[in-house]
Design a binder for these strands. Sequence first.
DNA 1: TAGAAAGTTGACGGCGCGTCATCCGTCTGT
DNA 2: ACAGACGGATGACGCGCCGTCAACTTTCTA
Lengths: 219, 219
Amino acid sequence: MEQSEIVKPAAPRAVPAGKREQTKLQNRQIILEAARKVFAEAGYGATTVRDIIRATPLASGTFYNYFQSKEEVYQAMQDETALAIRPKLREAREKAGTVEEFISATFRTFFEFVLRDDVDVRTIRHNADAQRMRVDTPEVIAGFDELREDIEKGITAGLFPPVDADLLMAAIVGVAFELAEHIGRRENPDAGAAAEFATVLFMGGIHALPLIGGPGPAA
Amino acid sequence: MEQSEIVKPAAPRAVPAGKREQTKLQNRQIILEAARKVFAEAGYGATTVRDIIRATPLASGTFYNYFQSKEEVYQAMQDETALAIRPKLREAREKAGTVEEFISATFRTFFEFVLRDDVDVRTIRHNADAQRMRVDTPEVIAGFDELREDIEKGITAGLFPPVDADLLMAAIVGVAFELAEHIGRRENPDAGAAAEFATVLFMGGIHALPLIGGPGPAA
DNA sequence: TAGAAAGTTGACGGCGCGTCATCCGTCTGT
DNA sequence: ACAGACGGATGACGCGCCGTCAACTTTCTA
């Protein structure tokens, strides 16, 4: 692939940090921004470290002062996303007074964030082939752990029945990611509808799901 | 990475096909086998096309007569897996007379196959980092489509309530893959327990799940 | 202001990439 | 049985990406 446009460094403003430290943060951001752009344009698979460097005013050696590879850059991006959504999820779940509120808040918050965040998430899915990737970075895993902890707390508090928190967490994660991917491809992604579907499924199973088409008996 | 051992071609036996055609199939198998080995030993991410070629008695040009890249080799491997499990899933679901049998058979068949198939599936997860990959090849997608079709047939036949077959399929797929990954990491992966958990979750939601620890009321 | 420390630069050797002119073994027709 | 045509295997080649590192520049310290 080819890549020529340059991401300019942000205009320097008076800041309270030492010049060294400031430049370091700036360079890191420059690289991440350039990578976002290049990944989105060319697809993750087709992008080379050199492409990212070229989209930057920096030298190749400098890149390696910040990241080891394009994989590491991608992980850093994922970490940023995970760091952004985790507090939202925690906060949403903390307010929950019932299992349903807990589950509903989790799915709703996740879907809304992910669909909004599509600029970063979906455009990167331009993967050369039909290839799909999930990078479970430390921050992402920490998010999973938080969900499990919250479930365990819920069990202790008597909110949840004493189920296998680990498996339940995995099931929620699996549905969340798969549905997000799925509805993200639809023409009019409806985060609310997806959250409702997932919540009802987890609350009452298939037989509780909203009916469509046929005039079945009201639930 | 380095790679030196050679995968020898199988001893030629009397076969009813032309020599040309026979060699073509054989070479393809040689490459796939070498790739399996190299992926398992070095991890998918760290493997280069050259590594695969080196694990083969073939020349580099020959490799490119069969595959365009290591990604394509990996896809071919996934396709083989998908082709192997799809008939089993279909058959298992066809026998189902109730929603529960349908769901249970799907999860059980999937987990049993995946845990047995670990040689191919999990060893490859040695991805350099914590990186995880799902390749939705045509055959894999066809498997998803079959599941959706079977759900739709179930709805038509009055077995299933008229729910959103697309979302339900996605939810099942999400739970199946995530749980498989999850229990695959446990010390004693129990396909039966995982299938039971998933089935009960889909049949009656969280409140129907098997309880652990606390001496709750029997279901 | 000088010396030390930190960070940047880009040229370099090494190697993986995909190609293609050449060659070889198989097939076909007589 | 043989010759010519054909499909496919071969591996050297040019290209570009890789990560490194000695030289250089900028910032910090005293």
